[in-house]
Structure formats: structure tokens, C-alpha cells
Simulated assay, not measured.
Amino acid sequence: MSDKPLKGLSAVVTGGAKGIGFAIARRLWQEGADLVLLGRDAAALDSAAEALDCSQVAADVTDAASLERTFGLIGHFDILINNAGAALTKPFGKLEPDDWHAMLALNLTAAYHTSRLALPGMLARRWGRIVNVASTAGLKGYAYATAYCAAKHGLIGLTRALALETAKTGVTVNAVCPGFTDTDLVARAADLIESKTGRNAADARAHFASYNPQDRLIQPDEVADAVAFLCRREAAAMTGQSLIVAGGEVM
């Protein structure tokens, strides 16, 4: 296999400036893809785009009208990575309707909007890759993360159903499900636990790592490897799948 298996292909990565999204973008770039990064943090986007010598567009994936304008400007692309997302931790009794709607808008509905905009071009060319970055929370429950789990379960359902609709078209639709990953999101969660419970952040990180039978946090590059595999031309038989990157947490 070529060391540039994605050469000649173009990719859009939402939430591509930080964490898992940036690791995915970097891996696709290393494998030869032309990139456009989407995100809300303009400064982070500028930094990421400079590092990868690629294009970037500031966009809110929860704003359907903004997305439509953005995708109109981007034009042709072959690969869509729906990575933008965030987690909210609250007891169910304190989960407000606005919390619920915000979690679904970012972690599920945004992927509907981006996929709806990307698919016509992919279907016309009879080739495309859509990869949704879900979570082990799309395959099991976590206490105090009801809305996030519901959204990620929905994202897995979207992946499977859309994969069946596109199975004969040359377009594949898959998901990658990381466990707790060593990103700013986990760091912020650890800091929140420290501020609310008095447990230090290191203990909180160790608690997250304990979910993984390997007793460690997943590294962003490990998630990026799984995503890149699904994007390759050689992965044509992979569709409707949820690749779990979690050290055996979910089997």
C-alpha cells in the first residue's frame, strides 16, 4: 500500500482544530488528503491550519443555515469526518431541557446536517467516506451522562441506517467509538471533579483510565489511526461499523 493512500482525496473535518479532531486531521494530511478544518475557535483553527498547511472555515455545526453556506463555499470533497462534539455531566434530575437539546444538537443533529449536505456530491461521483466520531457512550451507558449517551447512541443508529441506504453507491458510512481519551475534554472533566468533590485531578484522570482494562487513557493518535483506515480506498467493504478504540472496555 502507498504511504499516501489518501492522495488525490479531499476531506472535511469538523472540530478539527483540537484534540481528537486535530489528530485525525493530521493523520489524513500525512496520508495525502487535502483538508478543510471546521470549528468555532478561530484562533485554534488558524494554528491548526498553519501546522497542516490546509484550509479552515470558522463554522458552528449546530447552525444549519451557516453550515449550508459553508459547504457551498467548500464545494467538492470526498471524505467527511463528523468529529465535533462535547460531553455534559449532570445527574438526570438536574438535566434541564436546554442541556438535553444542546447535547443532541452538537453530538447528533450536526452529523445529520453535514451528511445531508455532503451526500449529494458523493452519490453523484459514486464514491465517498463518512466517519462519525461517536464514543463508547454510543454503545453503553454512563451514569450522569444521560443526554450525551442518548446522542451518541443516536449517532450509531444514524451510521447504521445510512450505511444501508448507501451500500450500493460507493459511499461508506462508519463510526469510531473511543473510550476515555487523553484530550482537553477529559482534562476539563478531571478539573471539574476536583473543584466539586475535592479529589485531585490526577485521581480523577486515574478514575477515567480505570474504565479501560488496559488501565490507561486512549491516545488521540490511536483514534486517528482507526478513522484513517476507514477513509482509505481499500476499506470499501467496511460500512455500518462501529470500530471501538477502548482497550477492551466494550467487546
Rank of each mutant, 00 (worst) to 15 (best):
I156A: 07
A49F: 05
A124R: 05
D221I: 06
R116M: 12
E31N: 11
T14R: 12
A124C: 00
A102N: 08
R160V: 03
A42Y: 05
R232K: 05
G8D: 10
D3C: 04
L106G: 05
L6N: 08
A147S: 15
G32S: 05
A143T: 13
G157S: 10
A163S: 09
A204E: 11
W100K: 14
T70Y: 05
L45M: 03
G248W: 09
H153N: 08
W29S: 14
A150Q: 11
G15I: 01
P220Y: 07
L52G: 14
L37S: 09
A48P: 10
V131P: 04
S66H: 09
L119G: 05
R233S: 10
G85H: 01
A189G: 15
G157K: 10
I130E: 01
K90R: 10
A189M: 14
I244D: 06
S10A: 08
G32E: 09
L192N: 13
A209C: 02
G248S: 14
V227F: 02
A87F: 04
V176M: 00
R126I: 00
G85D: 06
G248M: 08
D182R: 15
L106Q: 11
R199H: 15
A143H: 08
L155F: 02
G72T: 11
I218V: 15
G179F: 06
D46W: 03
A49C: 07
W127H: 08
L38N: 09
I20C: 03
L217V: 12
D215C: 03
H153Q: 09
N174I: 05
D60M: 00
D3N: 10
R216E: 14
S55Q: 12
F180M: 04
T183G: 11
D98G: 06
L104D: 10
I79Y: 01
D63M: 02
N107G: 10
S210H: 08
D191T: 09
A65M: 02
I130H: 00
Q30Y: 01
A151Y: 07
Y211M: 04
T166A: 07
C149N: 15
D46F: 01
D60Q: 01
A64H: 12
V250A: 13
S195N: 14
A237D: 10
A33N: 04
V57I: 13
R26H: 10
T14I: 04
T70Q: 08
I193E: 15
K94A: 12
F180S: 14
R40Y: 09
L106N: 13
D53C: 13
L164G: 02
V227L: 00
A190Q: 13
G19F: 03
G240T: 06
R188D: 13
M238I: 00
E222P: 14
G240A: 02
T169A: 00
L35K: 06
R205I: 11
A151D: 07
R40W: 04
G141A: 15
L162Q: 14
D98F: 04
L67K: 07
A65W: 02
S66A: 15
G141Y: 12
A65T: 11
G198Q: 11
R199Y: 12
T239M: 00
V13W: 03
L139G: 13
V13S: 07
L67F: 08
A102I: 00
R199G: 04
V250S: 13
D34P: 05
